[in-house]
Simulated assay, not measured.
Amino acid sequence: MKQYTERFRTSYDTAAEAYARDVFHELDHKPFDRSVLDQLAADVQGHVADIGCGPGHVARYLYERGVDVTGIDLSPQMIEVARRLTPEVEFQQGNMLDLASFPSGAFAGIVALYSLIHIERPDIPTALSELHRLLAPGGLLLLSFHKGTHTVHADNLWNVPVDLDFFFFEPEEMEAFLQQAGFLLDARLERAPYPGVEAETHRVYLRAHKPAA
């Protein structure tokens, strides 16, 4: 896992500026995503973590809706870009498999949109257990991923050389991982891709919570 994490970090460090140019305003063209984020913003009571925040576009969207949010990403260069684009929001570098710098129960909500897609299957339980630890009792989790069972490798994105694997998951598989980590599932939503806006993959959104007791 360490070797994969290093090449993942290096790839996003290299692609940070190009990635931000391509995706920072993508929510303008994704009404479904805005609706699920709006619902989370209305429901959450307290500090929210945007895990795998990239250039900070989701964190910025939540901040503009009154959410106290911190963005966290593995790539230091991506964090620098996020800080520059949205200086009002706190951004920190961190590995979602081990966020020991944050105490247990630190967040009332966690958003992880297309973050688990870079976690190899054997490490998904570790990642979700860490998210469960970070949530306060009753805390909300919103995550999304590409639907399927295959892996897509990319060696060039946004005209930048990268070395990235994208792991696809079936909804039932991820739901089982969530239950194993101690979450209770609240909702499953799915949608087709927005043509010309994003990769042509079917998308899944799961909302869950950490039991209050």
Rank of each mutant, 00 (worst) to 15 (best):
residue 55 P to H: 06
residue 23 V to F: 13
residue 120 E to M: 02
residue 83 R to A: 07
residue 170 E to M: 13
residue 12 Y to G: 06
residue 58 V to M: 00
residue 162 V to C: 04
residue 161 P to Y: 05
residue 138 G to S: 11
residue 176 A to Y: 05
residue 6 E to V: 10
residue 87 P to I: 03
residue 150 H to P: 01
residue 202 H to F: 09
residue 68 D to S: 15
residue 189 L to N: 14
residue 164 L to S: 07
residue 107 F to K: 00
residue 59 A to K: 01
residue 74 L to M: 11
residue 180 Q to I: 11
residue 49 A to Q: 03
residue 114 Y to K: 03
residue 174 M to E: 02
residue 127 A to P: 02
residue 121 R to K: 10
residue 94 G to P: 10
residue 106 A to F: 07
residue 210 K to S: 04
residue 130 E to V: 06
residue 20 A to P: 00
residue 54 G to N: 07
residue 142 L to W: 14
residue 112 A to S: 15
residue 25 H to A: 11
residue 164 L to Y: 01
residue 184 L to I: 11
residue 77 Q to C: 11
residue 197 V to Q: 04
residue 82 A to E: 00
residue 55 P to G: 08
residue 204 V to N: 09
residue 100 A to M: 00
residue 5 T to D: 13
residue 52 G to F: 10
residue 67 V to N: 01
residue 168 F to N: 08
residue 115 S to W: 02
residue 35 S to R: 12
residue 38 D to W: 13
residue 186 D to K: 11
residue 156 N to M: 13
residue 179 Q to W: 05
residue 155 D to H: 12
residue 69 V to N: 01
residue 85 L to N: 08
residue 48 V to W: 06
residue 124 I to P: 01
residue 192 A to N: 05
residue 24 F to T: 06
residue 205 Y to E: 09
residue 36 V to M: 13
residue 106 A to E: 05
residue 193 P to H: 12
residue 183 F to V: 15
residue 15 A to W: 08
residue 60 R to M: 08
residue 108 A to N: 04
residue 89 V to R: 12
residue 33 D to G: 10
residue 56 G to H: 05
residue 9 R to A: 09
residue 102 F to M: 03
residue 119 I to W: 00
residue 64 E to R: 12
residue 155 D to I: 02
residue 60 R to D: 15
residue 146 H to P: 02
residue 135 L to T: 10
residue 151 T to K: 14
residue 14 T to R: 15
residue 10 T to N: 08
residue 121 R to G: 10
residue 114 Y to V: 05
residue 31 P to K: 03
residue 69 V to D: 04
residue 205 Y to L: 09
residue 32 F to L: 15
residue 31 P to I: 03
residue 192 A to P: 01
residue 189 L to W: 12
residue 206 L to S: 09
residue 77 Q to S: 15
residue 60 R to F: 12
residue 212 A to P: 05
residue 125 P to Y: 00
residue 194 Y to H: 12
residue 134 L to D: 00
residue 178 L to E: 07
